[in-house]
Amino acid sequence: MATLIRPPPIDHSQSNIENVLELTQLSDIDPDLFTNTRPLWHPPGARGIFGGAAIAQTLAAAQKTITPDFTVHSMHCYFVLAGNADIPIIYHVERVRSGKSFATRTVQARQRGNVIFTTTMSFVRQNSGGDKKVEHAYPMPTVPDPEQGLDDLDVNPDGKSPFQSQRLPIENDDSPHPHTKKCRQWMKARGTISSAGSHEAHLSAIAYMSDSYFVGTIARAHKLWRYSTSRRSSADEDVLKQLLAMDDAQLKRMRFVDEADIARIRRLRNGEKDPDEREIGMMVSLDHTIYFHNPRGFRADDWIFTEMETPWSGDGRGLVFQRMFTKDGRLIATCVQEGVVRLRQPENQPGPKL
């Protein structure tokens, strides 16, 4: 059973992402309890549900306990256990503090009594900073605009991904130093977010999208191969078969395929040995932080530019920074994520388990 209560019909007055992230309040039990209204997506080959769903739905739940004059400015999340797409999630909001200028909420996501995800958020009262302010912002780089009518292949194999994206070539991809590379993409929610959703729906939407290929920046910066015929995941094997069947033009339209991947696919087609045999054995998120800078100054259904870079990796972990900008160059969020990044070990030397 993927939901606690039978889902209502799709609300066509709302965007896809609003329907995906819809919550049901369990007010008969506790006004601070919520559950996912609709089934959640389990990406092929992943350990559990898409992490962005837990991030976004905990934010949506917390926003329902905040007065309209307060807006989220930061959230700090931990992925504790892999979420099971076949089991409903219960979100419990704890009202830690409600002050004059700031309010704090903690949300735990549970399945079968176990915490799978936890976050603490801080909300700030609108215009509480005064008329005189200290202001500056990291500038958006000059990049090509998103192409009208061009959408990278869908992240969700059933064609119902709630957002679309266009990846750009990796900046400094030929550098021998992974920390100097920048992974960039345009993305936006599909359709039009309803006026009834207000700014909360746009905030939940970018929280959802912020987890798109985030920790994967490390693999891309190191040009690590992410699909292996020796791996036990049938999802990896299926993806690899599809990639091998594509020509170079088709491969370049795949948003998760880089030039290094295309070169490897060519070698595999020709039966050549890969000079770099390093492969990802495990890559999962540990934590996720979002700082919202202009939380009411953007639309998530307009194009948003994101830039990701990794300052460090080691000891089986890696760190990634992400900046999110509106199309006209305003910085709207800064995100940080640490994740497990382990290479596939020889069969006689298995890597440690989580």
Rank of each mutant, 00 (worst) to 15 (best):
N16G: 13
I17W: 02
I17R: 02
I17S: 02
I17L: 03
I17A: 01
E18D: 03
E18L: 00
E18H: 04
N19P: 11
N19T: 03
N19Q: 07
V20G: 04
V20W: 06
V20I: 13
V20N: 09
L21S: 06
L21G: 08
L21H: 07
L21C: 12
L21A: 06
L21E: 01
E22P: 01
E22F: 01
E22S: 07
E22N: 08
E22L: 02
L23S: 07
L23H: 05
L23M: 03
T24C: 03
T24S: 05
T24K: 08
Q25N: 10
Q25T: 10
Q25F: 11
Q25W: 05
L26D: 07
L26E: 13
L26R: 14
L26M: 14
L26H: 07
L26S: 14
S27M: 12
S27C: 15
D28H: 08
D28V: 11
D28C: 07
D28P: 01
D28W: 15
I29W: 13
I29D: 12
I29V: 15
D30A: 12
D30G: 00
D30P: 11
P31L: 01
P31D: 10
P31Q: 13
P31I: 06
D32F: 11
D32N: 12
D32M: 11
D32G: 14
D32E: 12
L33E: 11
L33H: 04
L33M: 06
F34H: 02
F34C: 05
F34M: 10
F34A: 05
F34V: 06
F34I: 05
F34N: 04
T35Y: 05
T35S: 09
T35E: 10
T35V: 06
T35G: 07
N36S: 04
N36Y: 00
N36G: 13
N36R: 04
T37W: 00
T37I: 00
R38M: 02
R38S: 02
P39W: 14
P39G: 06
L40M: 15
L40I: 12
L40D: 04
W41H: 13
W41Q: 11
W41P: 00
W41E: 04
W41D: 00
H42D: 09
H42T: 15
H42W: 09
H42R: 14
P43G: 12
P43A: 09
P43W: 11
P44E: 05
P44M: 08
P44N: 15
P44G: 01
P44T: 15
G45L: 09
G45P: 08
G45S: 08
A46Q: 03
A46K: 12
A46W: 14
R47M: 12
R47F: 07
R47D: 03
R47A: 13
R47V: 13
R47C: 13
R47E: 13
G48C: 14
G48A: 15
G48N: 12
G48M: 06
G48I: 12
I49K: 05
I49R: 03
F50G: 00
F50W: 13
F50D: 00
